[in-house]
């Protein structure tokens, strides 16, 4: 398959990106007979935040979950097309799904810390992947991860407390710390702020901006302001199709497709 120029793409804008970590080409997802995603092709570049926006049920979350193969857990889901990570087909038989998910972290819509201590939440990933040689190394990973997630100062005195005892915003930052503790290359975020208040949302958005230096980040969001604030590129999905892709500034100031324009001007959503 030709990766540089997707054929028959109806998507407006340039779907390719320099130095991509992910390349998706003509990806379709079926739930039984129902087609949830139509021929989506897009690149995700390193050190970039890609925002995926669109009305409910447009397939943005489904596409996101293709990137770390979380759709595998749904027996009825079937994925066709090509998704490459660093030039390797992640749906290839030889691709180990556990290894893929260690490289592609995920943060979910509802904060879902494990019902364990704060420390154990962050240490779990490094532990199952054998990343820390000893207890001191593990402590180091936990501290660094919590610091990068901007949570260290708030929880350093109570690492033994349950992760579920934190506030919603803190829990979500704990989930981010948990994801970056295994040192992934990409972080997928599925509406990470939809359950949070504006102050907690602002903190997560600042955090996403900081993390961009180290990771490729893919954010699904319902908030156009959030997409405008945190992302460099924006992809607009509609009814399972990728309608338009472009630099965020351009999409929000000068949408080319009438659906994109209608959505960002608030005519539907």
């Amino acid at each position: 398959m030709d990766l540089s120029a997707p054929k028959n793409s109806r998507t407006i804008g340039d779907v390719t990106a320099p130095n991509p970590v992910f390349r998706a080409r003509e990806v379709n997802v079926f739930y039984d007979q129902k087609r949830a995603i139509h021929d989506v092709s897009i690149d995700i570049a390193r050190n970039e935040v890609l925002a995926m926006i669109g009305p409910s049920g447009c397939g943005k979350s489904t596409f996101l979950r293709c990137l770390n193969r979380m759709n595998d857990t749904i027996p009825a889901a079937r994925v066709t097309g090509l998704i490459e990570m660093d030039g390797q087909d992640i749906y290839d038989k030889r691709q180990d799904v556990v290894q893929l998910r260690a490289r592609v972290g995920m943060v979910f819509q509802k904060p879902n810390p494990f019902p364990k201590t704060i420390y154990e939440n962050v240490a779990y990933g490094p532990r199952i992947h054998g990343l820390a040689a000893d207890r001191a190394a593990l402590d180091e990973i936990v501290q660094v991860s919590l610091q990068r997630a901007g949570l260290w100062d708030e929880v350093k005195d109570r690492l033994g407390h349950p992760g579920t005892s934190l506030s919603g915003g803190q829990q979500q930052r704990l989930c981010i710390a948990r994801a970056i503790a295994v040192n992934p290359e990409v972080i997928l975020m599925d509406e990470p702020c939809s359950a949070l208040d504006p102050i907690a949302t602002a903190r997560i958005e600042d955090l996403i901006d900081e993390l961009r230096a180290s990771y490729a980040i893919c954010v699904v969001t319902h908030s156009m302001q959030q997409a405008a604030r945190v992302s460099q590129r924006t992809a607009y999905f509609h009814l399972g199709e990728l309608i338009e892709v472009g630099l965020t500034d351009r999409i929000f100031t000068n949408p080319r497709h009438r659906l994109t324009e209608a959505y960002i001007t608030g005519r539907f959503g």
Partner: peptide
């Protein structure tokens, strides 16, 4: 959500 969290971390 607990299963998703664990699988998302790369747990088998």
């Amino acid at each position: 959500s607990i299963r998703e969290a664990a699988l998302g971390m790369g747990a088998s």
